[in-house]
Structure formats: C-alpha cells, structure tokens
C-alpha cells in the first residue's frame, strides 16, 4: 500500500485538521442531540399531555397532528442546514487542508 508513508499523526496534529475536527464534532453531535430530544418529546408528550395534543388549532386539525407533522419538517430542515454548512464550512476547510498537505 503506497499510502503507508503518510504521517497520520502529523496530520492529526495539524491546526487546520484540529479546527475541522472541533467544528464538526460540535455541529454534528449538537444537532443530533437536538433532533433526538425533539423526537422523544412526541411519544412522551402523547403519554403525559394528552390534553395539549387534543387542542384544535385549525378546524379539526389538532396540536398533536401538527406536532407529529413538524417532526418531518424539522428533520428535513436539519438535513438541509447540514448540507449547506458542510458545503460552506467543513468541505472548504478540508480542501484547504488537502491543498496545504499537497495531497492533490
């Protein structure tokens, strides 16, 4: 394998890599935890706040239905936001790192 010569430890200590690593960790795990909390509110709320779920908002459409529906839109929003963030932040930083290391 030709890539044996690559000094991985050195890349790992490169400040640019550390920045990528840090910003990715914060973004990814932060939004992942947000999405989990938002999701688990749905079954927990259905069990403990049935009264709230039954409140009619528009005609016969109640809060519970809109909350469940919002789960889809929140998931999509996170996905699109991540795509935008990755394109403009992490992909850019990564390509800068690769240029710096002359790996391409």
């Amino acid at each position: 394998m030709a890539e044996q010569q690559t000094d991985w430890a050195a890349i790992a200590k490169n400040p640019k890599f550390e920045e990528i690593h840090h910003r990715k960790a914060v973004f990814l795990f932060g939004w992942w935890i947000f999405s989990c909390v938002y999701y688990f509110l749905l079954p927990i709320g259905a069990g403990s706040a049935q009264g709230l779920y039954s409140v009619k908002i528009i005609g016969n459409i109640n809060f519970g239905y809109l909350f469940a529906l919002s789960q889809f839109f929140v998931s999509w929003a996170i996905a699109l936001y991540y795509a935008w963030w990755a394109n403009s932040v992490s992909d850019r930083l990564t390509s800068e790192l690769l240029d710096e290391l002359k790996l391409r």
């Binding site: 999405s35 079954p43 998931s75 996905a79 991540y82």
Partner: peptide, 17 residues
C-alpha cells in the same frame, strides 16, 4: 401516524453520524 415518525427521524442519525 405517530408510529411512522421514528422511521424518518432515524435518518438524522444516519446523515450526521
């Protein structure tokens, strides 16, 4: 409907992690 929600939210984990 509530049962179906988790099947999509699962993909946030797939995407981010």
């Amino acid at each position: 409907f509530m049962y179906s929600v988790g099947w999509l939210v699962a993909y946030v984990t797939v995407l981010l992690i």
